[in-house]
């Protein structure tokens, strides 16, 4: 359903940009159509589960909120730990397990992601931000890590 929404959004946005150019009236200054379209792709097409399948896209729509664009996290009174150079990522099972079940204050993503999605984002994190682990996790391995009673 979101595809339709996005198209409408882009259309209106272009229309506005034109109007601005003609009237030079002070209006909203939305991003150019393509950039806005890419931004709105950040939202899943369903509210119940994430619909992105690509590891980078999944990272952008979930992990990035706390671990930031470059995987460095940030710290103040409390910290969102970095994913760059974090020795805990040595274990693909550990990282996939954290994504599935959450860890401390971090919410769990298991109920909103398929095994393939958890595998994709795990493998993305373990091969980016300076990480270069050679052992990807498979969706079947993720399935084994799911807590009992969770599909």
């Amino acid at each position: 359903m979101l595809r339709t929404i996005l198209c409408t959004g882009v259309f209106l946005c272009l229309a506005v940009t034109n109007a601005t150019a003609q009237d030079s009236a002070p209006t909203a200054q939305p991003q150019p159509g393509a950039a806005l379209d890419a931004l709105l792709q950040r939202f899943s097409e369903s509210p119940d589960h994430f619909t992105q399948t690509d590891g980078a896209a999944l990272y952008q729509t979930t992990c990035q909120a706390c671990h930031m664009e470059d995987g460095t996290g940030d710290a103040g009174a409390g910290a969102h730990p970095p994913l760059a150079g974090n020795p805990k990522l040595n274990s693909r099972h550990f990282l996939a397990g954290v994504i599935l079940t959450g860890y401390h204050g971090m919410p769990r993503f298991g109920p909103m992601m398929s095994d393939a999605q958890v595998a994709a984002v795990t493998n993305y994190v373990r091969t980016h931000f300076g990480n270069d682990y050679p052992d990807p996790i498979t969706p079947a391995e993720v399935a084994h890590l799911r807590p009992p009673g969770e599909d």
Partner: peptide
């Protein structure tokens, strides 16, 4: 709903752009 995660991953300017769109 999962939308709140996506909003949270955006820069302040991007959130405004999306809210307008």
């Amino acid at each position: 709903r999962n939308f709140t995660y996506s909003w949270s991953s955006m820069t302040p300017q991007e959130r405004i752009d999306a809210a307008l769109a």
